[in-house]
Amino acid sequence: MAVDTDTVRRIAMLARLDVPDDELAALTGELAKILDWMGQLGEIDTDGVVPMTAVKPMPLRRRADAVTEGGMADEIVANAPEAAGPFYTVPKVIE
């Protein structure tokens, strides 16, 4: 399956990753090479094989729906780009 520059541009858009035009050709070549190399997986018959999802199968643990830690607004907003008191202030991310 061919990977062209349009495909890479589309994938970069999906990944929200700015790829400069002058890097596009080289990146397309690299990705095509890597994906081609991965094509060898097609040699293996995996019919009926269950995809691996856990090293040690175990049921997802549950816990009581209760506060375990809290009361640390100052610590949490310390990494905020901007804070208004105990509130985290970010650019508008919903239309």
């Binding site: 970069a12 990944a15 990753l17 700015d18 990146l27 650019p91």
Partner: peptide, 23 residues
């Protein structure tokens, strides 16, 4: 903003792997 932030913030190998993974 997302695209520029991530384009500038991630190095070449990380960008390459994000693209492979997204694909």
């Amino acid at each position: 903003t997302y695209a520029r932030t991530r384009g500038a913030g991630f190095g070449a190998e990380v960008r390459r792997r994000i693209l492979i993974g997204t694909y």
